[in-house]
């Protein structure tokens, strides 16, 4: 091969490499979309617990939850203090049912973004409606290894004050798009809480975090562990589950 031909081959190779990189390199927004998509299920049923530990001890709340599509979900609490309380959510409304008073309460608006039992999980999080980019702008920081997994490190900055944490730094798995680790900070950059995945499971070819821990940095020995004991995804569900009749049963 002549010297000129060699140069041409190298040039073509570099051009192909450059464009293939352009085609395959994911933007920070693409990573967030893939992360959201990974958490969307057509239907799901789960049982689990939220255990809060502080210096006074541990408090555990257990629940059953069904979800369907982007909006429909029903959560029933099974732990003693909240037993029988249910929350039904559809696109625009949240219905609460308190069995002690046989009371049905309908809420709209900001109630949908409230955390479930003071945890870091909102009602929106418990359904398929996840669009992180609606709430945050995202920037790519670097890459890192967490739990022996290669991760993208991203910083999310809140677009409004209606979110729990103004700044989030997250470590997103490059293969499975689950968030292995997170650091939640105030607008001034003060670290408030840390999130980490303790356990994952592969269900229907998807890697799903089934045990996560959120530590409160401002309070010593204060953390919340959410554990999913049973999870079935993309399963047939009774059409009557997401109805007022089911809620008031």
């Amino acid at each position: 091969m002549s010297r000129t031909n060699k140069k041409q081959v190298i040039m073509v190779f570099m051009i192909v490499l450059f464009f293939s990189n352009l085609i395959h390199a994911m933007t920070a927004e693409d990573i967030i979309r893939a992360m959201d998509q990974n958490e969307n299920y057509a239907t799901s049923y789960m049982t689990g617990s939220i255990a809060t530990t502080d210096r006074f001890g541990e408090k555990i709340t257990t629940f059953k939850a069904w979800s369907q599509g982007a909006y429909d979900s029903l959560i029933e609490f099974t732990s003693l203090a909240e037993r029988g309380q249910k929350i039904l959510r559809n696109k625009g409304e949240l219905y609460l049912y308190y069995p002690d008073a046989e009371e049905l309460i309908r809420l709209q608006g900001a109630a949908l973004r409230q955390s479930v039992l003071g945890s870091d999980l909102s009602y929106e999080d418990m359904t398929g409606e996840k669009n992180t980019l609606d709430m945050y702008t995202v920037s790519f920081d670097n890459e890192d290894i967490v739990h022996n997994q290669a991760c993208y490190v991203l910083t999310l900055t809140a677009k409004s004050r209606t979110v729990a944490y103004p700044v989030q730094k997250i470590w997103v798995d490059k293969e499975t798009y689950i968030v292995h680790k997170g650091q939640y900070s105030s607008a001034t950059g003060r670290l408030l809480k840390e999130f980490e995945v303790l356990e994952t499971k592969v269900i229907d070819n998807r890697t799903i975090p089934v045990k996560t821990k959120i530590s409160d940095i401002l309070k010593k020995d204060s953390y919340t562990v959410m554990a999913i004991e049973e999870l079935q995804i993309d399963i047939p569900l009774d059409a009557n589950i997401f109805t007022l009749q089911s809620l008031m049963w």
């Binding site: 809420l107 608006g109 900001a110 955390s115 004050r161 209606t162 729990a164 944490y165 408030l192």
Partner: peptide, 12 residues
């Protein structure tokens, strides 16, 4: 009238 407002950090 009823307002339920999220306040930092995870408060209501």
């Amino acid at each position: 009238l009823y307002w339920l407002l999220p306040v930092p950090y995870n408060g209501t």
